[in-house]
């Protein structure tokens, strides 16, 4: 019996590195849009086509492995590694986001439609209220682009958001000792929601969002603590009254509605003056960096809060 011989591939047939690295542009926007849709629901990340944007910080990116294994997503458990370990069975297709409330044209957006929004690559700093931070290359579109389509009424003052409830797929939502009441809800003032920095992310590192990062669509508000970035959104409502928010309901003394990143206002249990960049420094070389007001986005957003007492409105 002849021994198995692997096929010999001549070097001339090997795709040059420059070409395979530029495969996304090669595939072109037409095919990529289709891929994005078909891939969005699967457990496997699919590449996304997005145009570059100016919304990029120059900080060193946090490694993808850190971004996708060090997560707070209590629907899948309270430990950092829980979401990446427990989110495998979570199904993100079919998916839709209902946008209603004080709007002229309420609408339920299918995921396919959301994936066709003009996607951008944006690199934002992310500061968790727990005192750590990351630098994440998101793919998404500004929330304002979605809100414009539903035509908010003049009476709308706030936007509320809601995460899906699926105890059968989300182990943190069943059993004794659930960490929080579900659904997870969040909210923004309308002007915050309309701010060009406020992003609905559908991907990171050029691919669709992993389940543990809030697939298929999540909010990113880079000047606020990370828990404002509600994940796996199924509902967005425009309201007149300030919406309920999960962490404020859970402990109003520690977590406010605004939750803007502010090194001058301590969390009652720890200082917010510095932060630990995840994935840098290791065990012995820990390098706490000073935390910046509004997470370094003060030039863009400080004016939203002109005249407000940020200590009282934490």
């Amino acid at each position: 019996m002849p021994a198995y011989r692997p096929p010999q591939i001549p070097m001339s047939e090997v795709t040059p590195r420059e070409i395979y690295l530029s495969r996304r542009s090669f595939m072109g926007s037409a095919t990529a849009a289709g891929l994005a849709i078909s891939g969005a629901g699967s457990a496997f990340a699919a590449p996304l086509m997005a145009k570059s944007s100016d919304y990029k910080v120059s900080d060193k990116l946090t490694p993808k492995e850190a971004i996708t294994t060090y997560n707070n997503f209590y629907e899948f458990g309270v430990n950092k590694e829980d979401p990446s370990q427990n989110a495998g069975a979570f199904k993100t297709t079919p998916w839709s986001v209902k946008v209603d409330g004080l709007v002229g044209k309420p609408k339920e957006f299918g995921l396919e439609e959301l994936m066709k929004m003009p996607l951008e690559d944006r690199t934002y700093r992310m500061r968790c209220v727990e005192g750590w931070s990351m630098v994440i290359p998101w793919v998404g579109f500004p929330l304002v682009a979605l809100l414009n389509q539903v035509e908010p009424l003049g009476s709308a003052k706030y936007v509320s958001f809601e995460t899906v409830v699926r105890p059968e797929e989300m182990p943190g939502q069943k059993g004794l000792f659930q960490a929080l009441p579900w659904p997870y809800v969040e909210g923004l003032r309308l002007d915050e929601a309309l701010h060009p920095l406020t992003l609905l992310a559908v991907g990171l590192y050029g691919e669709t969002l992993p389940n543990q990062n809030g697939a298929p669509i999540r909010l990113v508000v880079p000047w606020k603590y990370g828990f404002k970035g509600i994940k796996s959104i199924v509902k967005i409502s425009l309201t007149e009254k300030q919406p309920e928010t999960t962490w404020k309901n859970s402990n109003a003394r520690e977590y406010g509605f605004y939750s803007n990143v502010n090194p001058a206002v301590d969390h009652p249990r720890w200082s917010q003056a510095t932060e630990q960049r995840i994935g840098e420094g290791g065990f012995f070389g820990g390098n706490r960096k000073p935390t910046l007001p509004f997470n370094g986005y003060a030039d863009q957003v400080a004016s939203l809060y002109a005249g407000m007492d940020l200590k009282a409105n934490y």
């Binding site: 490694p63 492995e65 294994t69 950092k80 630990q276 995840i278 994935g279 065990f283």
Partner: peptide, 14 residues
Amino acid sequence: ASTGGMGFNPVKTF
């Protein structure tokens, strides 16, 4: 923790 086997925030985890 010292050999990188304790995730991305080894100080806190330890």
